[in-house]
Amino acid sequence: MNAALEHALQDWYPVAMVGELAPGECKHSKLLGVDITVLANHAGNATESTPTITVRADGAPVDVQQAFDHWWVCLGNKPRSLFTIEEASEADRRFVPCGVVRVACSPLRAVENFLDIAHFPFVHTGVLGAEPHTEVYKYDVKVDESVDEVIATNIKFYQPQAAKSAEGGIQTEYIYRVPAPMAAVLYKTCPLKPDALDVIALFVQPLDEQTCDVWPWMALYDDTSTQAELIQFQQLIFLQDRSILENQLPKKLPLDPGQEIPTKADYTSVAYRRWLKKRGAYYGALEVHP
């Protein structure tokens, strides 16, 4: 087995939303090139509100856990622990699993795009950005060694409609975290509660090295929008991203410097690529030269 796959097998990936399937219902999917089936079990006792699931890869049952309104699966025999998101246990937040978007791109390109703010005025025109407010001001990026995560802080960007709940443009502050090669969490100014941060995460299910299912998830302070409106807002944003992601060449993410040209605005992406390379997370990446 190749090292890139072996490495990727030890992480957890989302395969379904909690409550997505009715008891007894089954769906077919793929994870890291392996065919999987996801079956919602019949409730063991009447107090369980949503059914648990059983996932089989090539016919054999695999480890499953529930977190952030999704079911997560690990196919490896030495699973790393799943990352945490503290805000997931704050009872006053709205939790919004946004469904799934299939994208014909490398799972790593999907994460990198989520970490990028410079594209807002061009790809999410009039919503997350607008000309002439295109400048990306200096921000800070580091690898937090204590948790081995990439962290970008002090990001500020002008946004015409930062969220469903925003009325008019605001200067938005962002913090990004990359807690696993195929997941990213963003904390941004909450339009309705300026002292708090909304949380938006991107959980990526790699079907193979060039196809992924993306599961956006939010933990917000918003008591005015309906769940459907919030989901629609996020899906619209992600469909705009898809038109970019399916047109990047090469399909796999280059980790060696020199193949693409970053500027200061790309420091998060540079740090992400270095971090992937250092930990050997090459699934979805171009061949790496030592």
Partner: peptide, 8 residues
Amino acid sequence: RCPHRGMR
């Protein structure tokens, strides 16, 4: 291919 990040 854009030299920046490979966009068509």
